[in-house]
């Protein structure tokens, strides 16, 4: 009987220790991200949405604590997904009002990661669940999945280079839900160029697909101050 109690106590202790470990890891990631008060970054943005044809855009990213982010095309026009504000991990972690759950281990590419689930404490929050895939060695987030109440699920993948010490990625891939796009022909007066028309099945397949936005960042200017007017 004493042995069983001892085993149970040991198991409970290991669970507690594991929870402590994951909280420590999340805190370390958060501390790294908190080193950045603001940044300005130059990059190239590639958008892949089934109903959009757009060129690769040269963009500037501006971030300021706690959660202000702007992606700006200096020269031309860009379509930026609404949930793109979540590409900054500070937005996900800064509130601190969430429960951290250890969801085990996994792999992102060839790297072993810890899987962490963040459950917001606010029942009315737009984010229902965030899953983080954390590289425990470099203490950076490699991937996230965010489920929202109204805007579907976002996925984010990040790869790091020079700015890993600040938890800032060199490449960001942001996947998001897209809604169907349709305009009445009477409005657009399309020129029928003779190209092969899509069948109904093909058109149906194109509906509600995932869109993807990739940002390749050339360099960051960190903690040099950014005027509030940039975010207007």
């Amino acid at each position: 009987m004493q042995r069983i109690i001892l085993l149970l106590l040991l198991f409970q202790f290991s669970l507690f220790a594991q929870a402590q470990d994951i909280n420590v890891l999340v805190q370390k990631v958060k501390d790294k991200i908190n080193l950045v008060n603001d940044y300005e970054a130059n990059g190239r943005m590639k958008t892949n949405v089934v109903f959009l044809k757009v060129p690769v855009a040269t963009v500037k990213l501006f971030f300021k604590k706690p959660n202000r982010l702007r992606i700006k095309n200096e020269k031309g026009i860009s379509f930026v997904p609404k949930g793109a504000v979540n590409i900054n991990m500070s937005n996900v972690l800064s509130s601190g009002k969430y429960s951290v759950l250890d969801a085990g281990n996994d792999k992102v590419g060839s790297r072993a990661v810890k899987v962490v689930k963040l459950l917001p404490e606010d029942d009315n929050a737009d984010v229902v669940l965030s899953t983080l895939y954390i590289d425990p060695v470099n203490q950076v987030i490699l991937k996230t999945k965010t489920t929202t109440r109204d805007n579907g699920t976002y996925e984010l993948e990040m790869s790091y280079g020079k700015y890993i010490a600040y938890g800032l990625p060199d490449k960001i891939t942001f996947s998001f839900n897209t809604k169907d796009y349709k305009m009445p022909k009477g409005v657009t007066f399309d020129f029928e160029d003779g190209s092969q028309k899509k069948t109904a099945a093909e058109k149906e397949k194109l509906k509600n697909q995932k869109g993807k936005m990739e940002i390749f960042i050339n360099g960051y200017i960190i903690n040099k101050g950014i005027a509030d007017g940039v975010f207007n």
Partner: peptide, 9 residues
């Protein structure tokens, strides 16, 4: 440019 089934820039 808006077309029936999409936009292009």
């Amino acid at each position: 440019v808006a077309k029936t089934n999409g936009l292009q820039l």
